[in-house]
Write a protein that binds this DNA or RNA. Structure first.
Lengths: 328, 328
DNA sequence: CAATAGATGGCAAGCATTCGAGATGTGGCA
DNA sequence: TGCCACATCTCGAATGCTTGCCATCTATTG
């Protein structure tokens, strides 16, 4: 592989001149410029990104740490991040943490050593929180609130509003016996959605009915089984997210419930699958793409020394589809 | 950020000695060793990966180029790749090509400049084929056959067998009027599956009924609409993959067909969603995880100078679930 | 006392970039 | 016409950081 010095030798100039031609850093006399260009052509010279990054102390890499790429929510987000990064000349280093704090810490350290320009992280334990705080890199936490500070920011949706939207919609649809498959209260999305739900219940004097449920499909199946066992007269389900809604659909139909005739159902997130699924899921939309784009922009701004907003809470909206039906 | 020279100065030794302590390259006297360790502790020194990679001419990065991370098949594969890479101390640089040859070439070039240790690519146009052939890096093409050569290899499933398995199963289930939503013939998976189907049709004197269909959901909807228009008496559908099967399910049920009572259906790939879906999809399993693992291992072997198999065709198998039903 | 083994330091390589200094040339003024 | 000043261009060296090789030095053993 040709180096800048090979090019310089062939063109009969110094490496600095070649560098100037390539980067347009300064004027170069036309005939030398032509010779350099010719030499670049001839050798097929491409600058070594590692050397460049080493000098510049920046690798133009953004690290993305997700618990599980397989999860549609995370991979839709990863896609948005990749696109925005690519447009701006950045690359994505993808790390799967498998919800393993150990691996998360390893990844953060690795990104530090790689001189990544920022980290976008989609998971958050207390330990990682500390690692983030003591991290020299800008970190954007997505879908979790952040209590620490430093050069970090967070991006999430208005889950509180989402929770209200969900139950209000089921009420609009005439549900009398709503069960909330409640997401984990330790994470802000679960906590906030529950708060929204809770407030509406209070306001209308509705008795709360919750089943705790993690965000993964398997636990969704478990929770849904508990649902059909405990709540025979259920006519409305708020699933903690779309994957849980899909799991619940399987269990409910297996038990002979028809959706939305017997039980109406609403999810959260509006992942692509909520629309691909049959029936198409009513859900509370999170602007996933926008979250990814924003996260990248925050890192870009940080890199450029521009100001950025530390707390970003994006709006959510109701998407009515086939698992609910408004009363005429 | 502390450098190895800072550590050396504090410990009162030379940088080489520090390096030796860190990497265990050679023996170091115990008291110096202790001093070095203490200095590392004190400074929190972590070697600069860029400098290391520059020296070693290897960044321990594997580039993964997928057409679309959102596609479940690709992201299940990406996950397997990430896991296997992580275990072996490699990182994944994820590139979304969006089926854009331009972007693919850019990514290949970028990975070259980054001194990636290999590329795993899940898409394949003629132009990229050339780029791959002239690439100094080892390349593993997954899910496509490769006609060129160089230091490249390919990993794919036995699609031919898969095609046979699919139609034979529908015949076993008593289907008399099977339509094949045929994947693109330009790619080997489409071509080979069709060959398998074709051979069985020949053998049993069945009239072929095909609708051409790309691998994405939207085109699946289109093809499925064409299906219900053209083939009123269809009682068996072979979908070009699971996503297409899911799209077909939507259209068929909307038209009042019951599955599997009126129409039986089989897909390909056995993506996670084929099981999460209701009804659970009968499908032809591709060992996705194994494919990802193998692809990484090929690159690892190449890096170690070990031999590796250039052509890898993995076995497929039938997974019977709820969209087909064997005749008693 | 010599020879060898083991430990350690220094230097160079890997590569692109930037800065300060030097070189070349041109224009203006005496 | 000759000289000085200034502008423009170009080069070399230093920077970023680590590792491997070679040379050196010390200590131990025969």
């Amino acid at each position: 592989m040709a180096s800048i010095r090979d090019v310089a030798r062939i063109a009969g100039v110094s490496p600095s001149t070649v560098s100037r031609v390539m980067n347009g850093t300064a004027n170069v006399e036309e005939d030398k410029r032509q010779k350099v260009l010719a030499a670049i052509q001839e050798t097929g010279f491409k600058p070594n990104e590692l050397a460049r990054a080493l000098f510049k102390q920046s690798s133009k890499i953004i690290g993305v740490i997700v618990p599980n790429i397989e999860n549609p929510f995370f991979n839709e987000l990863a896609k948005a991040v990749e696109e925005e990064a690519y447009i701006n000349g950045y690359k994505i280093l993808l790390c799967n943490s498998n919800n393993n704090t150990e691996k998360e810490l390893m990844n953060i350290q690795m990104l530090n050593q790689m001189k990544a320009d920022g980290i976008i992280i989609l998971t958050y334990s207390d330990k990682t929180g500390q690692a983030i705080a003591s991290c020299q890199l800008p970190v954007v936490v997505v879908d979790r609130q952040l209590t620490g500070s430093g050069q970090s920011a967070y991006v999430e949706s208005d889950h509180y509003k989402g929770g209200k939207l969900a139950i209000l919609h089921l009420l609009d649809c005439g549900c009398k016996n709503i069960v909330f498959l409640r997401g984990p209260l330790e994470v802000s999305s679960g906590q906030q959605r529950y708060q929204g739900y809770h407030e509406i219940c209070n306001k209308y004097g509705i008795r709360e009915q919750c089943i705790d449920c993690l965000y993964d499909y398997e636990d969704g199946l478990r929770a849904a089984r508990e649902l059909v066992e405990k709540y025979h007269h259920v006519d409305g389900v708020i699933a903690s997210n779309d994957m849980i809604a899909i799991a619940t659909y399987k269990i409910l139909t297996r038990e002979g419930y028809r959706i939305p005739d017997d039980v109406q159902m609403i999810g959260f997130d509006n992942i692509r699958f909520s629309w691909l699924f049959t029936p198409e899921l009513t859900t509370v939309n999170q602007p996933i793409k926008k979250m990814g784009t924003l996260a990248v922009q925050i890192i870009l701004n940080y890199a450029k020394g521009l100001p950025f907003q530390q707390e970003n809470i994006l709006d959510v909206s109701l998407v009515e589809r086939q698992t609910t039906r408004r009363k005429e």
